[in-house]
């Protein structure tokens, strides 16, 4: 009963975000074309830099286009995770709905979880559009891709990233805006986790740093599943690393969030922005 009630609430939060997004109809269509421009840019950049040496240097020894497209498409999951939770909180504060939400019979963690669902669903759709354009027009190689393995890597990645997102929301709850840790984390991950180039080109120290970031394992797993035709068993090291991040980060983030929420109820700054 309790689980079904929670699922109904999460569905209501998703429906809310969908209803609001639907009221801006043109945005849907424009995003699909934006994705096309992004894919085309990678393709022509790839044609410019492509060489047999570069191809050999890539982990799956494929095209730079495929390598970069997977990197950008899946790095977005980290971006969305780090922004979805605190943006939602910020918006509720600014549009005056936060107090009305918090006096309902729904806990803030459920509100946050339900509110993050829509941005992730839109991102999943955007990923499909990205890959779709890539496959249809630019020869993105998917013939022997391990889709089940890729879905598993994605699911565990989202859980690990969500922990980071809830930690970021805790910061926003306490300090309102301007989360420097978030931007350092996104910038640092972009630099060292292998979004645009393989880890092997980095100095040893940065390669070690990359091993402390979940997105590194996420991109490695994705590329191995989609481009390297790795079996699900071969993906186990990446899946295990991501699962460890998720198991540590998710409970920790909810404990920190509960503490931050209590502090704002003491200081009276819950609805300040």
């Amino acid at each position: 009963m309790k689980l079904s009630a929670t699922l109904r609430k999460i569905a209501a939060l998703f429906a809310r975000d969908f209803t609001i997004a639907r009221s801006y109809r043109a945005a849907f269509v424009l995003e699909a074309f934006e994705a096309l421009f992004g894919v085309a840019s990678f393709y022509y950049l790839s044609r410019f830099v492509e060489s047999p040496e570069l191809s050999r240097a890539l982990p799956q020894q494929g095209t730079y286009f495929a390598f970069a497209l997977v990197g950008f498409a899946f790095f977005d999951y980290l971006n969305v995770a780090l922004n979805a939770f605190d943006q939602n909180l910020q918006e509720a504060r600014e549009n005056g709905t936060l107090e009305s939400l918090l006096v309902t019979q729904t806990s803030l963690p459920v509100i946050l979880t339900g509110s993050a669902l829509y941005p992730f669903a839109v991102l999943a759709l955007r990923t499909v559009v990205y890959l779709g354009w890539g496959i249809a027009w630019f020869g993105f190689p998917v013939r022997q891709a391990n889709w089940i393995g890729a879905a598993l890597v994605l699911a565990v990645s989202v859980l690990a990233f969500a922990g980071l997102g809830v930690l970021s929301a805790s910061y926003t709850l306490l300090f309102k805006r301007g989360n420097p840790a978030k931007w350092i984390f996104i910038g640092g991950s972009m630099l060292v986790s292998g979004v645009m180039y393989p880890l092997s080109v980095l100095p040893r120290g940065l390669q070690l740093l990359a091993r402390l970031l979940p997105v590194t394992y996420s991109l490695e797993g994705m590329r191995a599943a989609l481009l390297g035709h790795a079996t699900t068993i071969q993906l186990l090291p990446q899946l295990a690393a991501l699962a460890i991040f998720a198991v540590v980060l998710l409970p920790l983030s909810f404990v920190v969030f509960a503490w931050a929420l209590r502090r704002t109820k003491i200081t009276g700054t819950l609805t300040h922005f």
Binding site: R8, K9, A11, A12, A15, R16, T19, I20, S23, N95, T97, S100, L101, T104, Q105, T106, I111
Partner: peptide
């Protein structure tokens, strides 16, 4: 939620 109808708002808060 300004861009949702009155009914949609009430159904949403009712679910919560």
């Amino acid at each position: 939620y300004a861009r949702m109808s009155a009914r949609e708002n009430l159904l949403f808060f009712g679910a919560l």
